[in-house]
């Protein structure tokens, strides 16, 4: 049996500093350092052994077999063919975006649909507006629609109310309308106002422009403008 020769006398505890020195390969001076170095040396001699050749061969063969089972590119994750929750969310969002034509991005879907699409998108880390933070344009259209369907309004007054609500977002861009005459009163005096004419003056109606938050249609490349659903304006002007 190997023995530590008791030539050191009374033993003091080994300190962490001594251990760090011994593990770094140094043999610290002093009795404690020598004893600790001897202990580490003995532990390594007893336990750190090269595996026998047959055992090493068996282990390496098992490792190679495991590597070949997993495929040649071990850094690549296996293809996910199962329907994982994330994959299902991606498919659902793709379907929703296809069906709604991007309205979800603008937050212009009906509240329930907008919330559903925004919920799916949030699982994927995408930030789509919910029905609570839809842009004003979407709410504006609903308000105009409500006024247009109001059964308490009729005739010129209904038209004026719809026009007022519809043009509300652009009021800030208009000239002071306070000097305009009451078109319904004028109608009473002169009969119906022609379509496309400013009530009272008979001049062409001023384009209220797009509602606030909805950009005007941008010019097409090359300066040509495209009329929706019609021929190019530039085609006729060229």
């Amino acid at each position: 049996m190997r023995r530590v020769v008791d030539s050191w006398g009374e033993m003091d505890p080994f300190t962490p500093q001594l251990l760090e020195q011994v593990l770094a390969g140094a043999t610290p001076e002093g009795r404690e350092g020598e004893r600790l170095a001897a202990l580490v040396r003995e532990l390594r001699a007893d336990l750190l052994e090269e595996p026998p050749a047959d055992l090493a061969m068996r282990h390496v063969a098992a490792m190679v077999a495991a590597a070949s089972e997993a495929g040649p590119d071990r850094s690549r994750r296996p293809t996910m063919r199962t329907l994982t929750p994330r994959r299902a969310a991606v498919l659902a969002l793709a379907a929703a975006m296809t069906l709604t034509g991007g309205l979800a991005w603008a937050g212009a879907l009906p509240p329930a649909a907008q919330d559903a699409v925004a919920g799916v998108a949030s699982h994927l880390g995408l930030d789509l507006p919910s029905s609570d933070d839809r842009p004003e344009a979407a709410d504006h259209g609903r308000e105009v629609s409500e006024v247009a369907h109001d059964p308490n309004l009729e005739g010129c007054e209904k038209g004026q109310a719809v026009a007022a609500v519809a043009s509300e977002p652009s009021q800030a861009h208009r000239q002071d309308p306070s000097d305009r005459r009451d078109p319904c009163a004028a109608q009473d005096e002169r009969g119906p106002v022609g379509l496309g004419q400013d009530a009272g003056t008979g001049a062409p109606a001023q384009d209220p422009g797009p509602p606030e938050g909805v950009p005007a249609q941008p010019p097409a490349l090359g300066g040509a403008t495209h009329a929706p659903g019609g021929p190019r304006a530039a085609d006729g002007e060229a």
């Binding site: 023995r3 020769v5 008791d6 505890p13 251990l19 004893r35």
Partner: peptide
């Protein structure tokens, strides 16, 4: 652990 090992070595030596 180091303190226990030191004691153990002491016992072995004794």
């Amino acid at each position: 652990a180091l303190a226990a090992l030191a004691r153990s070595i002491e016992r072995e030596a004794v």
